[in-house]
Design a binder for these strands. Structure first.
Ligand code: MN
Ligand code: MN
Ligand code: ZN
Ligand code: ZN
Lengths: 156, 156
DNA sequence: AGCACTTATGAGAATCATTCTCAATAAAAT
DNA sequence: ATTTTATTGAGAATGATTCTCATAAGTGCT
């Protein structure tokens, strides 16, 4: 089991209670793509009184030390996820809010080639697909909580 | 030359002065990816006193009637562009702010297949690539204003 | 453990983009 | 021209996020 204080130290961050608690939440398998507000509420639920400003600060610190990745889905609020998966993209269901993760190696490659050929150095990229997960819903997979593993993997 | 009142009527929008002025700006070849604030300032520069709230409203109306497309690049502000180009994606230079447009038919297809196979109905998607345009800059293409035509087209 | 030094936290104020409210106005319909 | 209905403008309100600054907590060193 990964040692959280260890993780923080490695990331160059002091081991403080708020950071430990928040990293615990993010490592918890029950959640995956969470907003700052979500984290704040989860903390309250577990009896930890940590200010919202602190939650934002900690998440930003985590982002800067690459412990988490920040997403800007439509809707104006940032969403964070633990940076413990290979690079992947997201499909967001605009009906039920479920976020599906997928990975398409060939698409990544194509993106890189494209940029490189154009003389552009990629620092980052974001691909979000919005729609509804009807088909998946029909198969009873929609209302399940997001899974730890990528939902869809497209092989080369 | 496309008739602006015509365009508005077709879109089911009343022909009002603010709408005409704003559509004029968007159709003007000098700008392409603009924020509401940008539009507001351009209006002021040309002596039109149109409230910022109206600019936002009009742009949203335009979006709803598919006259424009709204982008949510990183940085928390929406950017709009006239919807007069085939579907395309964007590379945003985080140094100079230049936005390059590109189109990769195969990537689009792949996205669609991916989603379809997963039982997901795509309503929309956004692919933004962030980085720096060093190479392009070297070739003296970077600080030019965005062009009307897609910057980069990748053929099948 | 106790002390000093540095960094993080909390609460609330401040900021920023965007939306809302509502009275005044302008466009379309009759 | 008159009525009807949608739009505008100014400023207030909102919502997410950041900032400020006094207080508290972590870390290193006696
Ligand atoms: Mn993810
Ligand atoms: Mn574009
Ligand atoms: Zn769904
Ligand atoms: Zn550049």
């Amino acid at each position: 089991m990964p040692n959280i204080p260890q993780n923080l130290k490695q990331a160059g961050l002091k081991t403080t209670l708020p950071r430990i608690k928040i990293l615990e939440i993010l490592k918890n398998n029950e959640v995956r793509h969470v907003s700052a507000e979500d984290v704040y509420k989860l903390l309250l639920e577990s009896g930890d009184e940590i200010g919202l400003a602190t939650v934002y600060r900690v998440l930003t610190d985590f982002e800067n030390s690459n412990l988490v990745i920040r997403h800007n889905f439509e809707g104006g609020r940032s969403v964070f996820e633990l940076n413990d998966q290979p690079e992947h993209d997201h499909m967001v269901c605009t009906e039920c809010g479920h976020v599906f993760e997928f990975r398409d190696e060939r698409m990544n490659e194509r993106q890189k080639n494209l940029a490189t050929n154009a003389g552009f150095s990629i620092a980052d990229h974001s691909l979000y697909v919005y729609g509804t997960c009807d088909g998946i819903k029909d198969r009873g997979e929609c209302d399940m909580p997001p899974r730890r593993d990528l939902d869809i993997i497209v092989k080369k």
